[in-house]
Design a protein around this nucleic acid. Structure first.
Length: 154
DNA sequence: GCCAACGTTGGC
DNA sequence: GCCAACGTTGGC
């Protein structure tokens, strides 16, 4: 049974366009424990990922990706050259995890946060009231509504 | 660029 | 284990 998630990325750093170009990517650099727990324990291959552009104008869901590898230790945490380096990470305790994503689609038009707020059925979406969590679970119903909005290009 | 929300750190 | 200080996120 696959699930649906919302992952946030700043498009200036790595947008849906970058993912489309690359085909797939390592979702590294998550340094928040709640988001880490999702990546480590619950995000599975075949799960859908709504790709959200944060710190953007406007912010919103830009497309769809799919998980192709479940959580495994994030090598960036062990790399002193990386901006995501964490001296407390070790072989015994990797602390941080990443998953791999594959590109699926870019919506004909971004679904702005305003539209999510206004859409019936999305009142409880975490992105609306817990906006800081960078990896969030999305219910199947919410996922379908967002995909419908995105594919409609409204 | 501002600032509110909120997660993390560290002194006690 | 509390909580104040601090840093970061992210919408506007």
């Amino acid at each position: 049974m696959s699930r649906c998630w919302l992952f946030k990325s700043e498009p200036d750093v790595y947008s849906i366009g970058h993912l489309e170009r690359d085909g797939r990517t390592h979702w590294e650099g998550v340094r928040n424990y709640q988001a880490r727990n999702f990546l480590r324990d619950e995000v599975k291959p075949g799960d859908r990922v709504l790709y959200y552009h944060s710190n953007a104008d406007p912010p919103g869901v830009a497309g769809l990706a799919e998980v192709v590898r479940a959580g495994y230790p994030d090598p960036a945490a062990r790399d002193p050259e990386s901006e995501y380096y964490d001296p407390k990470a070790s072989d015994e305790d990797p602390r941080w995890y990443r998953v791999d994503l594959a590109f699926r689609e870019t919506f004909p038009a971004l679904v702005p946060l305003d539209a999510l707020r206004a859409a019936p059925g999305l009142e409880k979406m975490l992105v609306i009231n817990r906006s800081r969590l960078s990896v969030q679970p999305v219910t199947d119903e919410e996922c379908e509504i967002v995909l419908r909005l995105g594919r409609a290009g409204a």
